[in-house]
């Protein structure tokens, strides 16, 4: 019986080794045109990492390939839907996104600096909050559900036109208090499993959690089309999933905690390219 147990454990270990079949040295160029920075020096404020990596490098060759051509990236289906929404007049003011902003390409670079401080509202805004700000304040339209399909589609469009541009989220000035709150959350252990974000994504990236190859938990590539559920997934929805997996009560999508955490985690990726909509497992 003893030897059987040993065999069982060995088999599990081998499976884990097999699962780590990502090509971590690969470079990402989308449509043979857009060069994506998937690894670079960690920013100074990320004390415990020397190099930061996009989640793309941790995926299998097959999953990586799905993001290298927009035609093969199912996330781009939703970008097309968002282009239609971009040009659609909605609300009491007779405005569309396009009426103020022109073509979606005019928004190049915007995704790279979010979340950011909004002077008028005197708050840190995620890009989703800013889209809803536009809808309610400029268009007289209803808010979209945070992390709902319309919002994720629009986030995918805004990301797609910024692809290749380095993430450059401000961490000081008026956002500093929220950033520090986010950092504190990142290092706080939650749930029955008593895990912080850092336990998996800082201490153990590159290792396997069962058959999953742990990434650094970077969010430069969101929204992401996951093979698991065949749809776009937002940053805060993913946070929710992670915290739930620690067997904790999670914060709500759109909560102050998650806005702070999104700001902090985004800043950990300063220097990586905007990459969404990405493809992950």
């Amino acid at each position: 019986m003893k030897s059987l147990f040993k065999g069982g454990i060995a088999a599990v270990a081998i499976l884990s080794a097999f699962a780590a079949n990502a090509d971590e040295e690969a470079d990402l160029v989308i449509n043979e045109e857009i060069e994506i920075t998937v690894r670079t020096d960690a920013p100074a404020h990320v004390e415990n990492l020397s190099t930061i990596y996009s989640g793309w490098v941790f995926r299998s060759t097959e999953t990586q390939a799905l993001q290298m051509d927009d035609f093969e990236n199912p996330g781009m289906i939703f970008v097309d839907d968002a282009i239609a929404a971009w040009n659609t007049v909605e609300g009491t003011e007779g405005q569309s996104c396009a009426a103020c902003h022109g073509a979606p390409e005019e928004m190049a670079g915007v995704r790279a600096v979010y979340p950011k401080w909004n002077d008028e509202a005197e708050e840190v805004r995620t890009i989703a909050m800013q889209v809803n700000g536009c809808r309610t304040e400029q268009m007289g339209a209803d808010e979209w559900k945070y992390d709902g399909n319309e919002m994720l589609n629009m986030e995918a469009l805004l990301a797609s036109v910024s692809r290749g541009i380095p993430v450059n989220v401000a961490i000081d000035g008026p956002v500093q208090a929220m950033w520090e709150k986010g950092r504190e959350l990142y290092y706080t252990r939650f749930g029955q499993l008593d895990l912080s974000c850092a336990n998996c994504h800082e201490d153990n990236y590159g290792n396997n959690i069962r058959a999953d190859h742990l990434s650094q938990g970077q969010i430069n590539a969101f929204p992401t089309y996951r093979l698991k559920n065949a749809k776009l997934n937002g940053v805060q929805g993913r946070f929710r999933g992670c915290i739930r997996d620690t067997r904790a009560e999670t914060f709500a999508v759109g909560s102050e905690e998650f806005i702070a955490l999104e700001l902090y985690v985004a800043s950990r990726g300063n220097g990586l390219s905007v990459e969404g909509p990405s493809v992950r497992n």
């Binding site: 097999f18 995926r59 299998s60 060759t61 097959e62 999953t63 390939a65 698991k228 497992n281």
Partner: peptide
Amino acid sequence: PEIAENGNTVP
């Protein structure tokens, strides 16, 4: 693929 990361979408 010898190993599929997710059974939902295997090329």
